[in-house]
Write a protein that binds this DNA or RNA. Sequence first.
DNA 1: GCCGATTTGTCCGTATGTATC
DNA 2: CGATACATACGGACAAATCGG
Lengths: 241, 241
Amino acid sequence: MPRAKYQTIYQDIKQKIETGEYEFQKLIPSENSLVGIYNCSRNTIRRAIFELAEGGYVQSMHGVGVRVIYQPVSPTAFSMGGIESFRESAIRNHKVPGTKVLNLTNITVDARIAARTGFPEGEEVCLLQRVRYLDGQPLILDMNMFLTSLVPGLTVEIAERSVYDYIENDLGMPIVTSKRRITVERVTELDEKWLDLGDYNCMAVISGKVYNADGVMFEFTQSRHRPDYFSFYDTAVRKKL
Amino acid sequence: MPRAKYQTIYQDIKQKIETGEYEFQKLIPSENSLVGIYNCSRNTIRRAIFELAEGGYVQSMHGVGVRVIYQPVSPTAFSMGGIESFRESAIRNHKVPGTKVLNLTNITVDARIAARTGFPEGEEVCLLQRVRYLDGQPLILDMNMFLTSLVPGLTVEIAERSVYDYIENDLGMPIVTSKRRITVERVTELDEKWLDLGDYNCMAVISGKVYNADGVMFEFTQSRHRPDYFSFYDTAVRKKL
DNA sequence: GCCGATTTGTCCGTATGTATC
DNA sequence: CGATACATACGGACAAATCGG
């Protein structure tokens, strides 16, 4: 439940768009009208509209109005966007998630790992490897490394549920920024061992570094997706320089 | 040259971060100090900081300050992010771009194309197919479809340079929003015919719909990238609900 | 543990500029 | 030209989080 006023307005307008009350390609009420509707200042309205534009819901047009550009996406495949846990994504895509933990051990970062992940050499990290199932099919091979000092007490039970739940709710450490990179890599023996790959010789790979509110990178993650079940959405707004 | 004050401040701070004047993991001056430095209101400073946070340069911490979290990326492969033309990306990645136009014809949208692109059936579109070279190697197969009514007068010469330059500068139509989807697909005969693929049997595919300032989709685009030269960056900030 | 200083987060009201129609 | 609508900017107020004494 958002307590900031602009969040409430954002949610309300977003819902009106998703239910079709504000129609695709039509204009929503002008900022000044919305000021009256929500009984707030224009700055607050603008903040809400700005976030809607970022999410690909609307587009502001100088001197004209704010147009709805949202259309529901066809849920053909599993899709990822924003910072979401596997469980959150699965539920949003109406799939039944499953998880098998392959490995959960503490290791010390050596030079090779440090170069690949960005963790400082000598740090203690917890290595977690999991196979992810959607509707019973093994589709994703997940590798996570957590800084043991910031994420202590990981167990197989937590890893089978949602590590993010544990970090945010139980440890009370807010997750803030995440830098991700999407690449396509050759399949490895591990991929072939655990996933049903058919004759694909490539995997879609999302590598990410996750930072907490202190700006400390506490997680490195790599998700290897079977190509035909991988789909990543992104809405970009061109900056005027 | 940005003319808005917050843009100038954004550029200035960004440059100070990139050159290391504002160090990685350290705090930048407080908002109130920056108000003095740039002789402006706090809202203007906050706007600039907000954009820096979106770009993955800084992270605001309530009650503490604003921390620099930017580290230069290793330019190992061709990378994409935001809305950029091929030329812009190539130059940013210090590669020499090249283009060969395979096809430039006007077609009418039939049912099959309409379903795949989202263009209305019966519309006139201009179909453009190009091979993209980086430092002489054929790596990307591009397919674009432009609404003829909004993007008239395309020629092979323009297609060999930058179509976006033509649209924005010559036609004066600002490009605003772009919705993209990244998938991994099997190689096609066309891929094999025009690109050096080795034994890869998959391609990284970026499909996108581009909207102008009127909220009209005027372009559908599909870029097929050779896997080992594909890399997509994204910085996400987790929203607090 | 409390208090006060500092810093960011939210919100308001107003003024002015610019683009569209 | 005038009316409307979004864009930028200012200045002020208070809340919430953090940190040091």
